[in-house]
Every structure is written in structure tokens, then in C-alpha cells.
Write a protein that binds this DNA or RNA. Structure first.
Length: 434
RNA sequence: CGGGGCGUAGUAUAGUGGUAGUAUAUAUGCUUUGGGAGCAUAAGGUCCGAGUUCGAUUCUCGGCGCCCCGACCA
């Protein structure tokens, strides 16, 4: 994309109504636009990041055999009454409205009930199971207090996945696979080494339990107890002497740290299916309730978390899998011949399917560099009078001060190989706590 | 939902009971071109409503909106 055709503008100053690092940087760089408190729109650069996050997540979910769907935003009151979750006293984040004929409807803050209800039409027999579906959708929650930029919004983008199984064993086995898949997702988006699978409630031997994926981050709302060495983490809810000793550790082996909940997974057992009447016939012809588990990732919150964790005083530093573009090609000067060369290099990159943002604007070098640092595309390539005679490209990673000189062919080869210039090697997530 | 703070140009800010200023962004021209250049010109603003007052952007009240702390967050 030619930057001259990008309608968004960068800002030199932080918006007065934002305090959080993620909102300040994303707004200054033109990734997002605030519509009202807790409600943001995604502009071209920001939307590309969201799309990349969705792609990474979708790839890992599809490897689990899940199918992508899209449930409706408007929801049926009756479905939620079956599980006693329609009442505002029970669920305080409902947005509700009425049809012209006064029928009450809800705006989806979660989709467990509607999806289980929908599955009743399609799942009748053990032959229809197991099945997993996922979707990317805007969730609407009437939060009393939105805060922290895009970290806690009234409207936000979430991936939610639901797994339906005949047996508990199948359900638990999928739960395990999902943890591995989630870990892969957080590795790929650059948060692997600071994201912990965190025990949240229940235990392996209860019917219902959950885990959170918590990314260590000062801007986080949650506190978790972390044992870095064994990569164990416990939520405050399960932080007690009994749990700790079951792990063969002492309370002093853990450190209390603030973290952002980027993912959350639940095993519901058969409770929800019983309430909603999601019943199948098993092999011996008996009727039984379906085992259900659900798996969420806050996609927009994940974007905010990456900004919070990976940035410096100049701007954002995107990991290459989620960056809005892989390369930022910057043309300096106003020389026509040089410009033609830059155009040629731009087209060559396009034909190699390299995602490139081409700064072809007629601006001074300082402003272009400042914008490039702010936007944070992983690799910067400069075409200017200083380098043109050497027939080499000037290449620099956003996270480094080292400038490399290389040919276009060499650059393309580097970009296509898995060994890019990223110096930080993400560590894998540890195994789960218990 | 409790407590606190704040609404002045697209953005960021100053100031005043009596003609609202600066920076930046925008438009035009000239100069400039490897880390947010310079000069000139132009356009652009007091959140809404009521009250006090000869006169309110300023004071009072109400509304709307925004931020922070806490509570809340299946």
C-alpha cells in the first residue's frame, strides 16, 4: 500500500482523553478511532493487525478441527431464561432493547446459550459428535466502567469456540489440545514468553473448571501468582495453601504480578446441556446430555496487550506475524530517477507477495522516520541518495539500531525464510499447572 | 454503583465578567530535503440549556460527554 493513499494521519501529541499506552500509541499512529468511551473503530492499519490476529487464531483453531461460523448479535430472551441468565440481577452487562411489538431482545455479550440452542437442530446422535465451532464477533457488554483504551471495552472483538462431546474423556482431551493450540497462538503473536496458563477455578476432578491465559503486563487488571521457573501460575481465586502444596511448592515460591487476561477457557461439563435440553442418543440408544466446553480469546484486547508489552519511547514494535505490514519501504528525497527506482523496488516486493507499506509521500526524512518508528512495522527499508550508488538497500529492524546493507534479492530471501531478523526468540509456554 | 478531576480550533494547550491567544495540523506560494525545517498568506474555536448581569467562554444550577481511583468483571 502506498502511504500517500492511506487516509489516516499520525499525531505528534497524545490525545488528552487517553491515559493508557495502547490507546495513546494506537491513536497517534492512526490505527484506531474512538467513537465513545469504551467503543473504538479500527482504521486500515489497525484492522490489518486485527485481521492478522484473526488469521493466526483461525489457523490454530482449524488445526483442532473447529469450523468457523458467525452467530447473530441479536439474541432471543427465551434461550437465556432457560439458564436463568436473562435477569439483570444475574448478568449485569446486558444491553437490551425491544422490537416494535415490544418483544424483548438482548445484544450478545456471550454466545454459549444461543450456540447450544442452535446445536439442538444439528446434533441428535453420538454419531454427530464431537464437534467444535468458533467465530469472531463483536461482543457487546454494558460495562459500568470502560477503561484502559482497547483493553476493556463495551464493544470488542472476541474469538469464541465451543466444543461438544459425547464423553467427558473426549471433552477433557479436547480441552488439553486447546491449551496447546492457545499456547501456539500466543507464541505466534509474540507474547509466548510472558503468557501463562493460569488455573482459575475448580480442579481437574471437579465437573466444572477453567483456565485463563494471562500475559504479564503492568497495565493488567488482574493479579496472578507466578512461579517463573516451572512456568506455573495461579489466579487469586485458587491461591491458597492447599493448592500450592498440591503442586509441591511453598507460597514463597510464587511472585505476585499484574497480568492481562488474554484468553479464558471453561469446561461446563453437562450442566448447560441439561438446562437447555441438548440431548443425544448414545450407542446403546440411551438419551444423555452433551459435554460442553468453551474457549475465548479477546482479539482486540490481545492487540492492546501487544502494544502495552512491545513498544518503546518512539512507538510500537509489532511482531512480524501480526504487524500491519511486513516491510516499511521509505523513499527519501525528491529526485525523479531515485523515485523511479523506489517504485521499481516497491513493485518487485509486491510481485514477491511481500506485504509492504511504501512511504512515497513528499515529506522530509525526519518526519518519515518518526512515523515509521511510531507505526512499528518490523523491517524498514530506506531508498535514498546516500545508498543508491552502492546498489544496496538499507535495511533496519524496528527493534534494533543495526543497519544492514543488502541486495533486494537477499532481502526477499531473508523475508521468505523463517530466520528473519527477529533477535528475540520466543520461548514456548510451559505445561499447564495441573 | 461510590469518590475525585476535566470540557476553549482537526489535535494539544493559554487566558479573560467587556474584540479569545499560541503551537501543530490543513490550504496556497517560495525556499528546503537522511531524524518531526523556514518565511508569508488564508481558513478554523469557547459542549448544551437555564439563571445572575448592561454584558457570561469566565460566576451559579441542571444536562450531556470524557478521564482517573475503588467496587464490579460468566
Amino acid at each position: 500500500m502506498r502511504q500517500s493513499r492511506l487516509f489516516t494521519k499520525t499525531r505528534r501529541e497524545a490525545p488528552a482523553d487517553e491515559v493508557s499506552k495502547n490507546a495513546i500509541l494506537l491513536t497517534r499512529a492512526g490505527f484506531i478511532n474512538k467513537e465513545m468511551a469504551g467503543v473504538y473503530s479500527y482504521l486500515p492499519l489497525g484492522w490489518r493487525v486485527i485481521q492478522n490476529l484473526k488469521r493466526v487464531i483461525a489457523e490454530e483453531m482449524e488445526k483442532l478441527g473447529s469450523r468457523e461460523i458467525l452467530m447473530s448479535t441479536l439474541q432471543n430472551k427465551g434461550v437465556w431464561e432457560k439458564t436463568d441468565r436473562w435477569d439483570d440481577e444475574r448478568v449485569d452487562v446486558w444491553f437490551k432493547s425491544k422490537l416494535k411489538n415490544d418483544t424483548e431482545i438482548g445484544f450478545g455479550w456471550s454466545h454459549e446459550e444461543p450456540i447450544a440452542e442452535m446445536m439442538k437442530s444439528h446434533v441428535k446422535s453420538y454419531n454427530d459428535l464431537p464437534v467444535s465451532v468458533h467465530q469472531f464477533q463483536n461482543k457487546l457488554r454494558n460495562e459500568v466502567r470502560a477503561k484502559s483504551g482497547i483493553m476493556r471495552c463495551r464493544e470488542f472483538i472476541m474469538k469464541d469456540m465451543y466444543f461438544f462431546a459425547e464423553t467427558e474423556a473426549e471433552n477433557l482431551s479436547f480441552y488439553e489440545s486447546a491449551i496447546a493450540a492457545y499456547s501456539k497462538v500466543f507464541d505466534r503473536v509474540g507474547l509466548g514468553n510472558i503468557t501463562y496458563v493460569t488455573s482459575a477455578s475448580g480442579g481437574m476432578f471437579t465437573d466444572k473448571f477453567s483456565h485463563e491465559f494471562q500475559t504479564l503486563c503492568d497495565a493488567g487488571e488482574d493479579y496472578i501468582y507466578v512461579n517463573t521457573e516451572r512456568r506455573l501460575a495461579l489466579n487469586e481465586e485458587v491461591w491458597n495453601e492447599k493448592t500450592v502444596s498440591e503442586l509441591g511448592l511453598k507460597e514463597s515460591d510464587f511472585e505476585k504480578k499484574s497480568a492481562v487476561e488474554v484468553g479464558n477457557i471453561f469446561n461446563f461439563g453437562t450442566k448447560k446441556s441439561e438446562d437447555l435440553g441438548l440431548i443425544i442418543q448414545n450407542q446403546s440408544g440411551e438419551k444423555q446430555s452433551v459435554h460442553l466446553s468453551s474457549y475465548g480469546i479477546g482479539v482486540s484486547r490481545l492487540m492492546g496487550t501487544i502494544v502495552e508489552v512491545l513498544s518503546d519511547e518512539k512507538g510500537m514494535i509489532w511482531p512480524k506475524e501480526v504487524a500491519p505490514f511486513r516491510v516499511h519501504l521509505i523513499f527519501l528525497g525528491h529526485d525523479g530517477v531515485l523515485k523511479e527506482l523506489a517504485d521499481k523496488i516497491y513493485n518487485a516486493m509486491l510481485s514477491e507477495n511481500i506485504e509492504v507499506l511504501y512511504d512515497d509521500r513528499d515529506l522530509r526524512a525526519g518526519e518519515k522516520f518518526a512515523d515509521a518508528d511510531l507505526i512499528g512495522i518490523p523491517t524498514r527499508v530506506v531508498i535514498g541518495g546516500k545508498t543508491v550508488e552502492s546498489k544496496m538497500l538499507e535495511v533496519k529492524d524496528r527493534g534494533s539500531d543495526d543497519v544492514l546493507m543488502m541486495t533486494l534479492e537477499h532481502l526477499i530471501e531473508k523475508l521468505n525464510s523463517s530466520t528473519s531478523f527477529d533477535k528475540v526468540q520466543d520461548k514456548s509456554l510451559g505445561t499447564r499447572s495441573y
